[in-house]
């Protein structure tokens, strides 16, 4: 009862990285609260799936293994999570801010009337004071202890908001892949494994959507794991403007990323977006080209080792966190980087 839950996303038989990252975070939250960490693994042919999650410090694994549960569809997964939560009454539920998590989370929160915060970049435990109406209809201050602080950039990434759900449980949050760090707690961690009778949780009538066809492509790039990232912003001006970044990246054996503004403008594909609503990167070197540096972008790259900012605006916010600030236009500076890299690396 009142434990921390993580919904584990499973592709085939493999638990997604984002879920393992959340287990690591969930373990820490559970320790702070003095409760247990539990997780849900739902899919097909999940024999032994617990071996993937237990090392992250899971005390109880709820396995739902049935034909129809993979590939994921909204209704059956909602039904099993909602019905399990009605029994278990978790205080916190974490999901990946993936297509699946963002499809499932809101449906579950609606069914349970619980608050859900999307795309959190930090999760903490703390207290909260709020004025509430008492029995006599008067406002009085109420103190809530050990609330989940759901912290996220908001309003297009220009401010950071801390959200709490004091009166409703579970407190639900989604987090993007790469935001939290995945760490094995103990390879031999002992937890309980419960294999549930799926039919008890998911009525036959919930299997309403049929997946006719499915294509998963291998990622075209390894932005998340790249040692050097060359990222472009709206200041690159065009799709063609990005070509020089691909040239620079090729020289440096780097990957190309982009800010949301550049993606929205159609300069590059969405899967290269870095930031709160894109990929989080932790490269050794981050070269920001024509990126102003909204909070939502910085949330996805602030842990980079060395940040080089190239911007014609000396007051660009990103310059404040940069180690090297080059005041100049990308058209001038980027070709010079290529030229002198070629000259000096030989």
């Amino acid at each position: 009862m009142n434990n921390v839950f993580v919904y584990c996303e499973i592709e085939g038989q493999t638990v997604a990285d984002v879920s393992l990252e959340l287990l690591t975070k969930g373990r820490k939250l559970a320790n702070t609260l003095g409760v247990q960490l539990e997780c849900i693994c739902a899919g097909s042919k999940l024999d032994g799936v617990e071996k993937q999650v237990l090392p992250f410090g899971v005390d109880k694994v709820h396995v739902f293994d049935a034909e129809g549960l993979f590939p994921y569809t909204s209704n059956p997964h909602t039904a099993l999570v909602v019905n399990l939560f009605n029994e278990e009454k978790p205080q916190i539920c974490l999901l990946g801010a993936t297509v699946i998590g963002r499809d499932l989370g809101p449906r579950v929160s609606s069914a349970l009337f619980s608050g859900l915060t999307a795309d959190c970049t930090e999760l903490e435990i703390g207290d909260f004071d709020m004025n509430v109406k008492n029995e006599n209809g008067e406002m009085e201050k109420k103190h809530y202890v050990n609330q989940l602080y759901q912290i996220r950039p908001a309003f297009g990434g220009n401010i950071v908001a801390t959200i709490v759900n004091p009166e409703h449980r579970p407190q639900m949050a989604t987090v993007r892949e790469g935001v939290m760090k995945k760490e094995v707690l103990d390879p031999n961690y002992k937890g309980e494994v419960i294999r549930h009778d799926v039919a008890k949780y998911v009525p036959e009538t919930e299997y309403v959507v049929k997946v006719l066809d499915r294509h998963i492509e291998k990622a075209k790039h390894n932005l998340k794991g790249a040692a050097i990232v060359v990222a472009g912003g709206y200041g690159m001006g065009s799709k063609e403007g990005f070509d020089m970044l691909f040239d620079l990246a090729k020289e440096l054996h780097a990957e190309v990323g982009a800010s949301r503004a550049a993606v929205d403008a159609g300069f590059v594909d969405h899967d290269r977006q870095i930031g709160q609503t894109g990929v989080t990167v932790r490269p050794k070197v981050y070269i920001a080209c024509g990126i102003s540096g909204q909070i939502q972008h910085i949330a996805g790259m602030q842990d980079a080792g060395i940040i080089i900012s190239i911007n014609s605006d000396p007051n660009a916010p990103i310059n404040t966190i940069a180690d090297y600030v080059i005041n100049g236009t990308v058209e001038e500076v980027v070709p010079k980087l290529i030229k002198y890299y070629k000259k000096n690396s030989k």
Binding site: G115, Q150, E167
Partner: peptide, 14 residues
């Protein structure tokens, strides 16, 4: 169910 506890305009530590 959700309440905004705080809103901050983040000032980056230069």
């Amino acid at each position: 169910p959700t309440n905004v506890k705080a809103v901050q305009n983040i000032v980056f530590k230069a």
